[in-house]
Every structure is written in C-alpha cells, then in structure tokens.
C-alpha cells in the first residue's frame, strides 16, 4: 500500500489490541508462569517448583493415557469425517434448490448446541431402549443389540467418533464444495476427451486439486479434535475406566476437580506442543504431496 503512513490506523486496532493483550496474550504468558509453580487454588502458599510439574506429568500414566485417547480420537474421527464429507460434497455439488436444502440439513448439527446434541446421542446410545440397539435388533443382529455403547470400555470411544462424523459433516462439506468449485471445468473436459473414466478423473484431477482444501480441513479439524471437551463432559465423564479421558477433559479435571492449576497449565502447554508438532508433520506431508503433483 503506497499511501502515506497515518497514525490513525493504530486507533482502529487499539480496542481489539487491548482486548487481545488482556484476554489472550497475558494468559499465554501467565499459563507458563503457573506451570512453574505448585498453584493450588485452595492453598495460600504457591511455591515455585521449576520444571517439577513437567517432570511429574512426564511420568504420569494417566496423563499419557489421556494423550493416547486424544490421538486415538483424532486418528479416526478426522480422516473418517473428511472422507464422508468429501463423498457428500461430491453428491450434492449441483447447485439446484433441492441440493441447497440438503446442504442446510447436513449443516444443522454443526450449529446446534453441543450439550443438547450430547444429550440426544446419549439417549440414542442407551442399552436396549436406544435407537442404535433398536436398529441392530430390527436387522436381526441380536448379539449386539444389548450393548451399552457409552459404558463399554471398547465401544465408548468409537461411539464418540461416530457422533463426531455426524456433527462435523456440514462445515467440512461446505469447505470441500468451495474447493470443488475452484477446479476449472476445462480439466474435466480434457480428461473426458482423453477417455478417462470417473475413477481416473477423481484420482488424477479432483483429489490432487483438492489438496489445499484437504490440508486446511485436516489441520483445523485436528486442532479442534485434540481439544474436544463438551461431549466427554456430558456423555462419559472420561469413563469407562478412563477410556475416553481425553486431554481436553483431563486438564479440566486437574484444574477444576483437583484444583491443581499449576499442573493443569503444564499439561495444557504439553498439549499445545503436541498440536504444534502434529500441524508441522501435516504441513510436511502436504508440501511433499504438492511437490509430487507438480512434478507430474
């Protein structure tokens, strides 16, 4: 921008900057400070302990169990959610009125209250009375039809993942639709002239050209999924047997059930680090994919 500098621009930013400083930047620094103390809300004495919190959590099996649960959740809910969303986007990409109405329906779960959603899914997962068990019974799968999905140590996490595919469908589908409209039609016409079939066209044109969209959804969904809290709080409370105790929920219990604010802050910083590492890995993977594609 070649206009002369004007100081008045700073005044436009000023209110938001003050807000950011007090409610985001200061807390980030303060969290680091907290993580170096034994900061118990109920005790007046809050001694400096250096890296002790980090050392303790490094040897804490429950914390690593929570981290493992979070990674399990992310590893399934994000890729499965993305595959379903891409499939749905391909099905509804015609811009007719009917398709627009369907898109609105698919989006509905994403704008709904997570608490209400969690309540209705708890209801759906009820043993015997629930909708899932009823469907299994009507399909004749009686050996499964009495499962208490959220109380079963094996099934609780898959049940949460299944629900997350449902809630995440709308936003991911809209992003894929935006990506699909960005692909020039000429490429498809060229492919058709070359006699490429549906699958070859999808494999060699659609998928590679959607890579930036895929990357964006992958990164934002993973960051979101690593912090999941409300469904766990409402549906399983981390149980059964800590099988759904994900990091987002674990930090909450550490801070607001045990009142260990210092330890919880240390855990939140480790979570931040894990998110950072995963994002960087995803970045590397995608830039490699983009290189391969441009070499073709």
């Amino acid at each position: 921008m070649k206009r002369k500098h004007s100081k008045s621009g700073l005044w436009f930013i000023f209110p938001s900057f003050v807000h950011l400083s007090i409610f985001v930047l200061f807390p980030i620094v303060f969290a680091l400070f907290l993580s170096l103390h034994r900061w118990d809300v109920l005790k007046p004495d809050k001694p400096w302990v250096g890296l002790a919190n980090y050392v303790v959590l490094f040897h804490d099996p429950l914390f690593w169990n929570a981290m493992g649960n979070s990674l399990y959740y992310v590893a399934f809910s994000v890729p499965l959610g993305m595959i379903v969303a891409l499939g749905v986007a391909l099905l509804v990409q015609q811009n007719t009125r009917g398709m627009q109405a369907l898109r609105a329906i698919y989006y509905l779960p994403a704008v709904s209250s997570t608490v209400a959603i969690s309540m209705v899914w708890t209801f759906i997962y009820l043993p015997d009375h629930g909708m899932i068990d009823w469907m299994l019974r009507s399909m004749g799968m009686h050996q499964w039809a009495h499962t208490d999905w959220l109380e079963d140590p094996f099934w609780a996490m898959p049940a949460l993942i299944f629900m997350s595919i449902w809630t995440g469908l709308g936003p991911r589908m809209i992003l894929y639709l935006a990506g699909l409209t960005g692909i020039p039609n000429a490429l498809y016409e060229a492919a058709e002239i070359d006699g490429a079939g549906y699958w070859a066209t999808f494999r060699h044109i659609t998928l590679p050209l959607l890579l930036p969209t895929t990357f964006f959804i992958l990164v934002t969904s993973s960051i979101g999924a690593l912090q999941i809290f409300t469904p766990i709080y409402m549906m399983t409370k981390g149980g059964p047997m800590w099988k759904t105790d994900v990091v987002g929920y674990h930090i909450y219990t550490e801070a607001w059930r045990q009142f260990h604010m210092g330890m919880a802050s240390a855990q939140s910083y480790v979570l931040f680090l894990v998110i950072l590492v995963i994002t960087v890995i995803q970045f590397k993977m995608v830039s490699k994919g983009l290189e391969e594609y441009s070499l073709q």
């Binding site: 807390p27 969290a31 909450y252 939140s268 979570l271 931040f272």
Partner: peptide, 10 residues
C-alpha cells in the same frame, strides 16, 4: 492457533 485449554486457566 493457541488452544483454549492454555488460556482458560489464567
């Protein structure tokens, strides 16, 4: 990019 869990305690 900062996870909510980091800022919520402070």
């Amino acid at each position: 990019m900062i996870p909510g869990q980091v800022t919520v305690i402070p």
